[in-house]
Amino acid sequence: MTPMVLVVGYGNPLRQDDGAGWQVAQRVEALPPSGTDVRVIVCHQLTPELAEPLSASRRAVFIDAGIEGAPGSVESRSIVPASGTPQFGAHRFGPSELLATAQALFGASPAAYLITVNGRDFGYGSELSEPVKDSLDAAAALVVELTHAAEK
């Protein structure tokens, strides 16, 4: 069965707030089924192998940690496939490049959103900072809202 929504939380869970994407994605996965077919993936970084499941999805929600906003703030924006020839690299392969890859290789890319949870502490360890911990529910709610929007 084709998943309706693909949720991808990514980052390094051993570098504190960089693991926010994992935490949010796992909260979404733990929620009771809502009628929307959701597949949750957590990973350290985005890789081209995700292009195939992405191309088979109606909608995708990526969740990453950020450093530019106030710690604990949550931002959401829609993203489109990267244009031109993106630069490939293990650490520079973002959601837009992944959408472009899905489109080019598998002929489809879904409507997609990027949720950014801004962090404060990125040292060694799996403990999130307080502001990020406090923001997880709101971020998960935002993801759920977007997954439901896929049904409309």
Binding site: E49, T85, F88, T101, A104, L105
Partner: peptide
């Protein structure tokens, strides 16, 4: 162009196989 995306443009089947 000499990267995986160049391969993707020039020979998508090869890129798809690699993935």
């Amino acid at each position: 162009k000499r990267n995986i995306f160049g391969v993707l443009e020039a020979h998508p089947e090869l890129a798809r196989d690699g993935i």
